[in-house]
Every structure is written in C-alpha cells, then in structure tokens.
C-alpha cells in the first residue's frame, strides 16, 4: 500500500485513491497516418520493465481526478518524486547513477535503467526491443 503525494491536492493519500496507468512519457506519434506499422506497434504495445528507476503515470481517481507522474524505484518501491503532467522528472536513472558515482558508489551492471524520461533513453528504447 503506497502513500502517494498528489501534486495537485498537496498531500499524501492512500494508494486506494489512485489508479496506476502504466509507463509515463509515452507520447502518441504526432502524425499517426505517417507512422510505420512498427513504430505504431511499438507505441501501442511495448513497455519497459526496469529494475530500478521507473517513471509512471498515475491518476488520483478518487480525489481530484488529475493525472500526474511518479518516479518510483521498482526494487525498494520508494517514490522518489511526483510531478505534474507536462513536467519532466528531476530524478532519473542517469541522475541517480551519476550522483552515486560521485559518491564513489558502484552502480550494478544493468541494474538500473529508465525509459522515456530523457532523450537518450527515449532514443535507445526505439527499435531495440526484442
């Protein structure tokens, strides 16, 4: 049972008031008709399942009914930050890794990844899936 800070209500609420809506930052292709079948299929069906930092879309369903994003660690389940629609996360797998590196902490191989939040990750996630 998560305790989630709703960025619109400004306070923490019980998970039962929220619905998770999957991976965040999946933009619908701007021109669907000129999108290839592969790209469209990728948009529709393919999602990432990282061990570590994950950006998720949630809605405060029994509450203010607003959608917002959560950056969550999929191992510890810690919610690292919440941010409104249209905003970008300040914490990503890359930012955490570089923070840990600067503290001399080794980040495990492939242990953490993120998708969608940063340009490089978004680029990497295209067409590389198997």
């Amino acid at each position: 049972m998560f305790y989630i800070l709703c960025p619109y209500c400004g306070e923490h609420r019980e998970e039962e008031e929220f619905h998770p809506k999957g991976q965040a930052h999946i933009a619908r292709p701007a021109d669907p008709e000129n999108t290839s079948d592969d790209e469209w299929g990728d948009y529709l069906f393919f999602r990432d399942n990282p061990r570590g930092v994950h950006h998720e879309l949630w809605v405060h369903a029994v509450g203010c009914r607003k959608f917002f994003n959560i950056t969550r660690h999929t191992v510890s389940y810690e919610i690292l930050e919440v941010y409104k629609m249209g905003e970008q996360p300040s914490i990503t797998a890359e930012s955490l890794a570089s923070a840990e590196k600067s503290q001399g902490v080794q980040v495990g191989d492939g242990g953490q990844q993120t998708v969608g939040a940063s340009d490089s990750a978004a680029k990497d996630s295209r067409g590389t899936k198997v």
């Binding site: 209500c9 609420r13 019980e14 039962e16 008031e17 029994v62 509450g63 203010c64």
Partner: peptide, 10 residues
C-alpha cells in the same frame, strides 16, 4: 474537505 474512499464506495 476531501474526496476519498468510504468503505468500498467514495
């Protein structure tokens, strides 16, 4: 005032 879950309703 808040909108919230009440038993199994809202």
């Amino acid at each position: 005032g808040v909108t919230t879950v009440f038993a199994k309703a809202t």
